[in-house]
Design a protein around this nucleic acid. Structure first.
Length: 422
RNA sequence: GGAGAGGUGGCUGAGCGGUCGAAAGCGCUGGUCUUGAAAACCAGAGGAGGGCGACCUUCCCGGGGUUCGAAUCCCCGCCUCUCCGCCA
């Protein structure tokens, strides 16, 4: 949520900055409600004040043993007038609140202008794509008998997968390795969290109210959803809390499945496991003091890059342009891994600084000694998407004879195995 | 699933129709003392929001209701804890 004071003070500047996303802010709509809100709020509070004063006087009269009947009569229809004013005020307030939840975050001014992913700007590259003396095969061919899309379709439908044997083990090895590096070397606390969340949690991080169609809702009387990312339960750990400034930064890492409906992506990435309704991700989340968040974004991105480097997977880092930015992010750096069969880089991690946008929605604050509560800044990034990392390992480590080399750092997690022969 | 207890400020916890934004303790801030710190003592400070301002409103899990007036009474949710049953 954007600072409401900023909206009131300089809505035109907000509109300009948010316009860089291609988002058109309805300035006239806002001004009209805001004017009414002001009048109605002042009037409502005036009546409330009046009622308070009168009630206190009645109480005092009764305590003194005086006759309170004339005073009670004098209150007259105050209650009705107050109720009417209050109803009007609350209606506008509700409209404004609902509207504010649909306005995306302001992009950082340094974020490049642009419309979609074709306008993203390359920051750096690590390692050149490997040269193969054969035509590299894609992950579906390479995984052969160990990847069973038909079995998954049978039990769940399209965009699910069944991994077997060594492939399932490699998938697990990747997960374990990522968790171990982030906890042992990067100072993250591992957390195990619910895979089901309520509406408030999703509003806190920004998936709701606008993107309900992207989620799997749980049917039943409860208003709950499967998590689309661990970002939701993990970031919401600090919802409605005033943290001690001395405890910051908080760094959490969680391994969870992620569930996405992928509505609107029907024809996209239909081959293999690149885009699934269910996938695993190791997620990094940081809760930091406001003046540290830009530095924290660089560090967090570096933590994700460490995994790619240790796995010796060629990648590049991209700064997302304003038009490609997610709803809640002020700036995002994507990591794209090289996929030899596709002969291009594909997203494997997305690292974002949300500034106080999520914190304001969640009421997540901190207090420095003697200071007033202030909103924290929140960040997160994939470190990494496990399924896509599996694809990258298969394709980059293929030997041309149908076998896959096991990356050095994973050998211990694979029982010493150095090759996978599907 | 059955029975009971409870949800109050950063935390613990009292209050149970009016003078309650709410005792007390812890923690916090400033001061005295000290070379410094601790201890002790003194003083101070709740959160959110509105108004150009003097100020004002709101908040005791959430939502309704009763009342001139609700932390306090009533109803409906949600959550936590204890016991029994069942169960991974």
């Amino acid at each position: 949520m954007i600072d409401p004071r900023l909206l009131r003070q300089d809505i035109d500047d907000v509109a300009r900055r948010i316009g860089r996303r291609g988002f058109e802010l309805d300035v006239a709509w806002f001004r009209e409600r805001e004017d009414r809100r002001k009048t109605l709020q002042v009037e409502t509070e005036r009546l409330q004040s009046e009622r308070r004063t009168m009630s206190k006087r009645i109480g005092a009269a009764k305590a003194a043993g005086e006759d309170a009947v004339p005073l009670i009569a004098a209150v007259g229809d105050l209650g009705d007038r107050l109720a009417a004013a209050k109803a009007g005020f609350e209606a506008v307030r509700a409209e404004l609140d609902a509207w504010e939840l649909t306005v995306p975050n302001l992009p950082n001014e340094a974020v490049p202008l642009g419309k979609d992913e074709t306008d993203n700007v390359e920051l750096r590259r690590w390692r050149m794509p490997p040269a193969f003396n054969f035509e590299p095969r894609n992950h579906v061919d390479l995984a052969a008998g160990l990847l069973d899309m038909e079995a998954a379709a049978k039990v769940a439908g399209a965009r699910f997968s069944v991994l077997r044997g060594g492939l399932a083990k490699l998938h697990r090895a990747l997960t374990q390795y990522m968790l171990d590096v982030h906890t042992a070397e990067h100072g993250y606390q591992e957390v195990y969290v619910p895979y089901v969340v309520d509406r408030a949690a999703l509003e806190g991080t920004g998936q709701l109210p606008k993107f309900e169609a992207d989620l799997f809702a749980i049917s039943g009387e409860r208003d709950q959803f499967l998590i689309p990312t661990a970002e939701v339960p993990v970031t919401n750990l600090v919802r409605d809390r005033i943290l001690d400034g001395a405890d910051l930064p908080l760094r959490f890492v969680a391994h969870t499945p992620c569930f996405r409906s992928e509505a609107g992506n029907y024809g996209k990435d239909t081959h293999g496991i690149f885009r699934q309704h269910q996938f695993e991700k190791v997620e990094l989340v940081q809760i930091v003091e406001p003046d540290r968040s830009w530095q924290a974004l660089e560090e967090l991105t570096g933590h994700a890059e460490t995994i790619l480097q240790r796995l010796e997977l060629p990648y590049r880092a991209m700064t997302l342009c304003a038009g490609d930015l997610g709803f809640a992010a002020a700036k995002t750096i994507d990591l794209e891994v090289w996929l030899p069969a596709e002969k291009r880089y594909r997203e494997i991690s997305s690292c974002s600084n949300f500034l106080d946008f999520q914190a304001r929605r969640m009421m997540a604050r901190f207090r420095s000694p003697g200071g007033k509560p202030a909103y924290v800044h929140t960040l997160n990034g994939s470190g990494l998407a496990v399924g896509r990392t599996l694809i990258a390992v298969l394709e980059n480590y293929q030997d041309g004879a149908g076998a896959i080399g096991v990356p050095d750092v994973l050998r211990n997690y694979m029982g010493g195995q150095s090759r996978l022969e599907p």
